[in-house]
């Protein structure tokens, strides 16, 4: 029943979609990430855990170059390859990258528009205007985010009238509209109640059939519940990365053990 994991069954799984090699990242002079090496595989849920300020969110934001918004952020070395392309290459268009790598934020941030317009936003800014196309995508994405039945009768109402959990799932649906391959989630449930959290987790479980998902979470239970692989970060370093079962049941690094058992600090 409980599979015994060997290094070999990690290699003959699906090919890694994201490869991180010797990645160093700094805010100004303060280095935030040290020499990260990691392979993230397609259609798996990978969760990043670690205490606050350990660099996991920063790392997550490197995958869609959200850190470009911060002027003092700079890559000091190494590379991140998505589908074999170094995303920090000069040739890479950030806009195309972000269409490929969707993101859901800690605080649900639906635009103060109607539910329909929120989903359609990603397509509209690409210049897609035909109502028929948009209608189809809106329905598809809302169904994909398990939200269709809850909101189908009020698509034209403001998204801000929804509950917190619905808003967060709307944000996920909105991210799906631009058809990404990879979904980044930055503490998507930190502001949600347990039932809304459960729904989002359920959704993540559904979505991993089609998407590669990377989730940053403060809740170790959440990481344990939803993810296939778990990475533990501490002080900007990747301490341990492996199957969630192994990390939680039998971590090799004493720091990981201390953190997940609450004996940290």
């Amino acid at each position: 029943m409980a599979q015994t994991s060997t290094p070999s069954d990690m290699t003959d799984e699906n090919k890694p979609i994201i490869e991180i090699r010797n990645f160093d990242f700094a805010y100004g002079d303060a280095q935030a990430l040290f020499d990260i090496n990691m392979d993230i595989r397609e259609k798996e849920v990978t969760s990043f855990i670690g205490p606050s300020g350990c660099g996991k969110s920063t790392f997550l934001r490197c995958f869609n170059r959200m850190n470009d918004l911060i002027d003092i952020a700079n890559i000091k070395g190494g590379e991140i390859k998505i589908s074999d392309i170094n995303i920090y290459d000069k040739e890479v268009d950030v806009i195309e990258l972000r269409k490929h790598v969707g993101m859901v934020f800690q605080k649900s941030n639906p635009f103060p528009k109607s539910i329909y317009d929120n989903i359609a936003y990603g397509l509209r800014i690409q210049g897609i205007k035909q109502k028929s196309v948009l209608d189809g995508v809106v329905e598809e994405c809302l169904r994909g985010a398990a939200l269709w039945d809850e909101v189908k009768d009020r698509l034209n109402e403001s998204a801000l009238g929804m509950s917190g959990g619905q808003q967060q799932r709307l944000c996920i649906a909105r991210a799906l509209a631009v058809k990404p391959k990879i979904l980044l989630m930055d503490e998507p449930c930190s502001a949600l109640d347990p039932i809304a959290t459960a729904k989002v987790e359920e959704l993540i479980h559904q979505l991993k059939k089609q998407y590669t998902i990377i989730i940053v979470t403060h809740s170790m239970q959440q990481a344990a519940r939803v993810s296939d692989k778990t990475a533990f970060f501490y002080l900007g370093k990747l301490i341990e990365f492996g199957k969630t079962d192994d990390i939680f049941m039998n971590p090799t690094d004493p720091q990981t053990e201390a953190y997940i058992s609450g004996r940290f600090g």
């Binding site: 869609n64 959200m66 918004l69 806009i95 195309e96 972000r98 269409k99 969707g102 993101m103 934020f105 605080k107 941030n109 639906p110 635009f111 103060p112 936003y121 990603g122 800014i125 690409q126 944000c171 909105r174 991210a175 509209a177 631009v178």
Partner: peptide, 27 residues
Amino acid sequence: IPKGFREGSLALGASKWTSIRTNVLPY
């Protein structure tokens, strides 16, 4: 204007100006 609106639209592949035009200026 909450940072989330800007980030939200940028993360959907909006250019900077698009994001400002659609998600900062109107609000």
